[in-house]
Design a protein around this nucleic acid. Structure first.
Lengths: 253, 253
DNA sequence: TTAGTAACTTGATCTAGATCAACCCTACAT
DNA sequence: ATGTAGGGTTGATCTAGATCAAGTTACTAA
């Protein structure tokens, strides 16, 4: 039996090769043939509506996901029902890798807006990674990157004052968005003030006040979710604010 | 030319197969033949004296390390020279995987006491992982585990009060040590109060005070570095202390 | 043995940022 | 168009835990 080989434009543009996120995402640096193999494993274009779940804490790990468009928040739920946001995921980023260790998701991923993802069945990804050295390496790199990012957030949470945390968060968003081809100094935050506060370990009121201050100082223009960075240098300075030199953060002795 | 095949006892006991940490460490679950392959790649018995470095921030990634005995702290150094401790490493744990992403170490690992490690050249490990599916999977699991641990620390830092942080830290040490065959409720902390304070984002004085309180309440016995857990249940309760139900940690809506 | 230093403890004070309270938008539903 | 709820802002107060200060160990080195 011979299959007809009609290629539709709508399908074509869904392939990794032609995806605009190509060099941010998992297939980065793969050669053409390998890319095709990966392409065959990926289930494209799952769509997730705002406030819907990509996966929930406790579910068995079936797939990891690459964000194509939109954004997600991932969070842990405490025994008492409160949540702790772990991070936000933007297009080109991989979601769900925390689940590999226990073969089940340890956090929940919820769409902040209508979003779409590529679903990648994890067992097939691992199998494929055995055959494509570059893919294995890329996977390791991505996980390592996530460790790095989490560690940077830990640093922020452990010793930086509120102002520095928020400045650093905004700067991070700006950088990530500009990597994805969006404007670096003019963007919309898809998450609420409450979500930002939760991530950064502070109260909503503090976020609100700091945004106002930043606006008063002419560092930002803030209109609801829409942020314009007016003084990038100043923001950068605020984000690298030195911790006070006290004993709990002494020099390496 | 025929090599003499004398097996010394001192060498034998250094192999993964006979290592007491076998089922905590990288080779967990590998079959006999695969274990031998891994064994050939590992450089055993690097010894690191107290306060010496296993690797330093900025160095190119050559190897990852499995702790055999002793303990390490890993930390970032801020531009202003202050340090932020990322975690402590105990026997059976892998060190250096944050470096994979950028092929250079982004944190420094320093021995808290005289320690020994197995050095595993990273490029050879990756190559071997392509041949041994189980090893690849194990590597992914370990990295995923590290992500999980970091995320739990983030939760602690972002919304838990000081008492909960310290209780949780002590409980974690107790669990990890008991997994390694040490007593669960009677152990020595190899790190200083300052290091604990730094990790948990609080002042040394607060650590000191809390340890005193725990002792007054009969939860712990504290003699300098030596900790005895007297009331495990109470400590567990303290460690899971509910966050107050405020807006920055709202229910999933 | 003793001087010197780093780690630790305990108490007194201070402050960043949480909490409490009141209000204002803006979007959506009736 | 109008009511209503969730998100956001702003101000007043409060507090956990940082900071400052002053010892007290306990280890290191000569």
């Amino acid at each position: 039996m011979i299959k007809t080989q009609v290629i539709k434009l709508s399908e074509l543009k869904n392939h990794c090769k032609t995806c605009s996120l190509y060099d941010l995402c998992l297939p980065m640096g793969l050669e053409s043939g390998d890319l095709d193999s990966l392409d065959n494993v990926i289930k494209r274009r799952q769509s997730v509506n705002k406030n819907n779940f990509l996966y929930r804490m406790g579910e068995p790990l079936k797939s990891v996901y690459a964000v194509r468009s939109g954004s997600f928040k991932t969070y842990l739920t405490n025994p008492d029902g409160t949540e702790q946001i772990i991070g936000f995921s933007l297009p080109g980023e991989l979601l769900g890798m925390d689940a590999i260790s226990d073969a089940q998701h340890v956090c929940t991923a919820k769409a902040l807006e209508t979003s779409s993802v590529c679903e990648i069945p994890y067992d097939r990804l691992e199998t494929l990674a055995l055959e494509i050295p570059n893919l294995q390496h890329q996977l390791m790199r991505l996980m390592s990157k996530e460790i790095q990012q989490d560690q940077n957030l830990m640093l922020l949470l452990a010793q930086m004052p509120a102002e520095t945390r928020l400045a650093s968060f905004l700067l991070g968003m700006s950088e990530r968005l500009s990597n994805r081809g969006y404007a670096a100094n003019d963007f919309n935050l898809s998450m609420s003030r409450g979500d930002i506060a939760n991530l950064l370990g502070m109260a909503v009121e503090t976020i609100s006040r700091l945004l106002s201050h930043f606006q008063e100082n002419g560092v930002l223009k803030v209109e609801r979710k829409h942020i314009t960075i007016l003084k990038l240098d100043t923001l950068r300075k605020l984000a690298t604010h030195c911790a006070s030199n006290r004993s709990n953060s002494s020099q390496a002795s």
